[in-house]
Amino acid sequence: MKKFVLAFVSLAFLTVGPYVPAAAADWPSKPVKLIVAYGPGGGTDITARLLAQGLEKVTGKPFVVVNITGGAGWTGWAAIANANPDGYTIGYLNIPNMYMGYLDPRLKRAENIESFTLIMNHVVDPCVWTVRADSPYKTLKDLIGAIKKSPGKFSIATHGNGGDDHLAYLDMKRITGIEMNVIHNNSTALSRSQLLGGHVDILGANVSEVFQNHQSRDMIVLGVMDEKRSPFLPDVPTFKEHGYDAQWASTRGIGAPAGLPDAIVQSLTEALARVIESPEHQAKAKQLGLGLKVIPEAEYKITIKSYEQHIKTLMGW
């Protein structure tokens, strides 16, 4: 019996194999985990699966999308931050949704943005305000004017406290002094059905989520919160064009645990750049309505840090 036990335990150890610290030079020499903090089928998940496929082609090793959900995303982000910085665990960081997890003093979270090695930004998906096709408000100016006239009568559906859609609303509230009832949903599907069913007046969403509905005229996008017009919504003016300087977007970038060796950062950056620039990836992203915007590491970090104070003021922390 004893022999039997020993044999099996040693067999099991053998199968796992002894751990050899991977040299940075031959990265990747085994499958890489790509953590997504949201569930399968969401925007980030589909983006990740798209990227993972490209990375596998470029590096020759599988990139496995791992959905670690919950905690408004922080369960997954904490898993990235606390992983071994060996280049075999990377993941998607979602700005600005990440802010509230570590800026909110009530949550007492140990991790913050310093817990990550930021690699690069991948996708920028600007926030938009959408109304029903039969809405009496044809432009953003009309809408804001009407909201101002009757404060507390209009309602907007967003995607959770402290998320990009909510922050965008809070910023508009700061700029224009409008007052609306905010409805939080944990899925955009529900928000969209609430808009179409007339249960709310405005849908705060992102370009990729509504550009098809805008094209098919089921919903009308009134404004994009970006510097320039979105290529997916060329007929929709920006908030800036109307004089409201609100720029918000849901961004998805790649991060790794803090302390990732420079050589791996280098290889990873190169691999990512090759995938993102490939015509195949560009074409798929276009179909999904994803604005690709590569922001290199240094600039990415500055952008993230510079927003922190702004968020704190908006959320009142």
Partner: peptide
């Protein structure tokens, strides 16, 4: 868990 409305 986190309250969707207040983040509490």
């Amino acid at each position: 868990g986190l309250d969707l409305d207040s983040g509490y």
